[in-house]
């Protein structure tokens, strides 16, 4: 057992447990906290892969910005414990079979992909002095157009939110 391997298993376990807690905890704030736990442990997994920039951005964007918004909304709404209901007709006859089918699908493809994985990653990983610089080149040279399009989409969403919020006054 090397140190990165121990760290990997610890963080993977924390991520899985956190994801389960998000679903099973009944207090909304506790679920949100569990989700933050998942995000942070994912960031550690990125770190172990050598993707420092992605790890930092993961924490800044997801844990530091989006989840703060979630928490503030939950605090403002003062949402109580969630209520449990029995399965609705829709969930029982359409949702449940679809869920089971998709899970089996995922298990099938993952078990086959795992065998092919080492060769694939070996081809992709290139040792570079500064991965952040490489990422910047990719974003601002090779994929500049999709990158800018994404920013415009986000801007439009922002304007849409503003229009909706201003409606009453």
């Amino acid at each position: 057992m090397t140190l990165p391997l121990i760290l990997f298993f610890a963080c993977a376990a924390i991520a899985v447990i956190g994801a389960l807690l998000v679903i099973f905890l009944r207090e909304p704030i506790h679920s949100a906290l569990a989700l933050i736990l998942v995000m942070v442990s994912l960031a550690v997994l990125y770190l172990l892969l050598g993707a420092e920039f992605i790890a930092a951005v993961q924490i800044i964007v997801y844990a530091g910005a989006i989840m703060v918004l979630f928490i503030i909304v939950i605090m403002l709404l003062n949402a109580g414990e969630e209520e449990r209901t029995n399965l609705s007709k829709m969930a029982r006859y359409a949702g449940l079979p679809l869920g089971i089918f998709l899970t089996l699908d995922l298990v099938y493809w993952l078990s086959h992909a795992a065998l092919a994985a080492p060769a694939a990653t070996g081809a992709v990983s290139t040792e570079s002095a500064d991965p952040t610089r490489d990422l910047a080149f990719l974003l601002f040279r090779s994929y500049l157009f999709p990158f800018e399009i994404t920013s415009i989409v986000i801007l439009i969403a922002l304007l849409g939110a503003l229009v909706l919020a201003k409606k009453d006054s």
Binding site: I29, E52, F53, I59, A63, G64, V68, I71, M75, T132
Partner: peptide, 22 residues
């Protein structure tokens, strides 16, 4: 001595809000 030390400082300060909010 991280190659993106500055970003990590901001990452950690960005989750510092939780202490106060919670």
């Amino acid at each position: 001595n991280s190659s993106i030390g500055l970003l990590f400082v901001f990452a950690i300060t960005s989750i510092g809000v939780y202490g106060v909010a919670l």
